[in-house]
Amino acid sequence: TFELKGKVGKVVKIAEDHYLVEVEGDKWIAYSDEKLSLGDRVMVVDVDGLKLKAKRIP
């Protein structure tokens, strides 16, 4: 999973306390310091076990 750092994905679902992000065809649980919206493009900035930390990108 460490190779996911720096990869770009898309928010495909918003849950109460996390997001579901699709990166290279796989879906991952993600969290972010900022509020994300459905369809936002994100970059993986860190990997915490099986969770990704994501940041919105333009």
Rank of each mutant, 00 (worst) to 15 (best):
T1D: 15
T1C: 15
T1Q: 15
T1L: 14
T1A: 15
F2R: 15
F2L: 15
F2C: 15
F2S: 15
F2W: 04
E3Q: 03
E3G: 02
E3L: 03
E3V: 02
L4H: 03
L4Q: 14
L4S: 07
L4W: 03
K5E: 15
K5M: 15
K5I: 15
K5S: 14
K5R: 04
G6R: 00
G6M: 01
G6S: 02
G6Q: 01
G6V: 01
G6F: 02
G6A: 02
K7A: 06
K7L: 06
K7M: 05
K7T: 03
K7E: 09
K7H: 04
K7V: 03
V8L: 11
V8H: 10
V8K: 08
G9R: 00
G9Q: 00
G9Y: 02
G9H: 01
G9L: 14
K10L: 12
K10V: 11
K10I: 09
V11Q: 00
V11H: 00
V11G: 00
V11F: 00
V12R: 06
V12W: 06
V12M: 08
V12S: 05
K13S: 12
K13T: 12
K13V: 09
K13I: 08
K13W: 12
K13R: 10
I14F: 09
I14M: 12
I14P: 02
I14Y: 08
I14R: 08
A15F: 13
A15T: 14
A15C: 12
E16C: 12
E16M: 12
E16F: 11
D17H: 09
D17A: 11
H18V: 10
H18T: 09
H18Q: 12
H18W: 11
Y19S: 06
Y19L: 05
Y19V: 05
Y19C: 07
Y19P: 01
Y19F: 07
L20S: 07
L20H: 10
L20K: 07
L20G: 04
L20V: 09
L20R: 06
V21L: 14
V21N: 00
V21K: 00
V21P: 00
V21M: 14
E22N: 07
E22M: 10
E22V: 13
E22W: 11
E22T: 10
E22G: 03
E22P: 00
V23C: 05
V23H: 02
E24Q: 05
E24G: 05
E24F: 06
E24T: 04
E24S: 06
E24I: 06
E24P: 01
G25D: 05
G25C: 08
G25M: 06
D26H: 13
D26P: 05
D26W: 14
D26M: 14
D26N: 14
K27R: 12
K27P: 07
K27I: 10
W28P: 00
W28A: 02
W28L: 02
W28S: 01
W28F: 05
W28K: 01
W28M: 02
W28R: 02
I29Y: 14
I29D: 14
I29N: 11
I29L: 12
I29F: 14
A30P: 00
Y31I: 13
Y31L: 14
Y31K: 12
Y31C: 14
S32E: 01
S32K: 07
S32T: 05
S32I: 12
S32L: 04
D33R: 05
D33L: 08
D33I: 08
D33P: 07
D33V: 09
D33T: 08
D33M: 07
D33C: 09
D33H: 06
E34G: 08
E34W: 04
E34A: 05
E34R: 04
E34V: 04
E34F: 04
K35I: 12
K35D: 10
K35E: 12
L36P: 02
L36A: 02
L36M: 11
L36N: 01
S37H: 12
S37W: 13
S37K: 11
S37D: 11
L38D: 08
L38R: 08
L38H: 08
L38K: 08
L38A: 08
L38G: 05
L38Q: 08
L38M: 11
G39H: 12
G39R: 09
G39C: 12
G39A: 11
G39M: 10
G39D: 13
G39F: 10
D40F: 05
D40H: 06
D40P: 00
R41H: 14
R41D: 14
R41E: 14
R41N: 13
R41F: 14
R41M: 12
R41A: 14
R41G: 13
R41L: 13
V42Y: 01
V42A: 05
V42W: 01
M43F: 04
M43R: 03
M43E: 15
M43P: 00
V44I: 15
V44D: 00
V45I: 08
V45S: 04
V45N: 03
D46S: 04
D46G: 05
D46C: 03
D46Y: 03
V47N: 05
V47H: 09
V47M: 06
V47W: 09
D48W: 07
D48S: 07
D48P: 01
D48N: 06
D48H: 06
G49D: 13
G49W: 04
G49C: 06
L50F: 14
L50H: 12
L50P: 13
L50V: 08
L50T: 10
L50Q: 09
K51V: 13
K51F: 07
K51C: 11
K51L: 10
K51H: 06
K51T: 13
K51Y: 04
K51P: 01
L52A: 03
L52Y: 01
L52K: 01
L52G: 01
L52C: 03
L52I: 15
L52S: 01
K53F: 07
K53H: 06
K53S: 03
K53M: 04
K53D: 03
A54E: 01
A54L: 15
A54S: 05
A54W: 07
A54T: 15
A54Y: 02
K55N: 06
K55T: 05
K55E: 14
K55S: 06
K55M: 06
R56V: 08
R56T: 06
I57H: 10
I57Y: 11
I57P: 03
I57G: 03
I57W: 08
P58K: 05
P58E: 11
P58T: 09
P58Q: 08
